[in-house]
């Protein structure tokens, strides 16, 4: 390729930075607003940088509002979903890739089908089912609901990772006298660790970011997860935008940090899951 001219590089960077500014501006504004005192939020013209930035709004949402509680709810539900999905998915991926190398395809197609169901269709029976079972406003309702759409993703991705582990390794373990279960726990799981991390992270993100299920399956404010609690604050008579944005930062920050740390794993998992059959 021709060596890049300086002018071309400058133009490309200029375009990239403009695109980046548009992409990230909402987050800057979220952060900026969350740090402002209530009086300055409605200043006109709005202030882009302020001498009065403080963490007051965060203090308020964590003490006077149940945002801490929402955070715990989100965390419990997301961790529960992740644990359940990764455990079940690892079992299935092992079984599918090791025992039914060919029969796996119909099952994987079935998974594809389930992960593409419209969630708004399923929330109707879920709502009725969970209320019949008395599970509305429980963590269980959310963990089960989230697993229903996270699990197909997890199995799908793990099947890809498990296929990448050579069968010879299993056979070596079998020759050494290890049963299927021992091989799975002692040999395959440690080897599949990068895959398991990526899938766990992805499952966690799906559960943490989910909204409409929790909107329907929780009616008691103390059981709200962050996404529902935050969206509901908009409906208040007089919205305290600085507090609302502080809550939004609290919801967004953990996934941003997790994601930035584990970006490499996640990207490979997502692209593989979307493109391969």
């Amino acid at each position: 390729m021709t060596p890049p001219s300086a002018l071309r590089t400058v133009v490309l960077w200029a375009v990239a930075l403009v695109a980046l500014a548009v992409t990230l501006f909402p987050f800057y504004w979220m952060l900026n607003t969350s740090l402002k005192p209530a009086t300055e939020v409605f200043a006109s013209p709005p202030t882009f940088v302020s001498a009065h930035w403080s963490l007051d709004a965060y203090r308020t949402v964590l003490t006077d509002r149940p945002v801490g509680r929402y955070f715990v709810n989100s965390l419990v539900v997301a961790l529960g979903t992740t644990a359940l999905s990764v455990l079940l998915a690892a079992l299935a991926a092992y079984g599918l890739t090791r025992f039914f190398p060919r029969g796996a395809t119909p099952f994987v197609l079935f998974l594809l089908f389930t992960k593409m169901l419209p969630e708004t269709l399923l929330i109707i029976p879920y709502f009725r089912l969970m209320s019949d079972l008395g599970l509305l406003n429980t963590y269980w309702a959310l963990v089960l609901a989230y697993s229903s759409f996270a699990l197909p993703f997890s199995v799908w991705m793990l099947v890809g990772f498990f296929r990448g582990i050579p069968r010879e390794i299993d056979e070596a373990a079998t020759i050494d006298g290890a049963g299927a279960w021992t091989t799975f726990v002692r040999v395959i799981l440690p080897l599949a660790r990068p895959g398991l991390v990526a899938v766990a992270l992805f499952t966690f993100l799906i559960a943490w970011n989910s909204y409409v299920w929790a909107l329907v399956l929780t009616t008691d404010a103390s059981m709200y997860v962050l996404s529902v609690g935050i969206a509901n604050m908009v409906g208040e008579y007089r919205v305290q935008w600085n507090e609302l944005m502080a809550a939004a930062v609290i919801a967004a920050l953990p996934v941003m940090v997790l994601y930035a740390l584990l970006e490499r794993h996640l990207v490979s998992a997502i692209t593989a899951g979307a493109v391969k059959g």
Binding site: T23, P26, M30, A231, L244, A251, V255
Partner: peptide, 24 residues
Amino acid sequence: ALRIAFLTPWMVAPAVGATVWLWL
């Protein structure tokens, strides 16, 4: 770094992103 930065809107919960846009 650019890839991570550009991916941010996709990582945040759609409901939370939408709330931020309500304010914008």
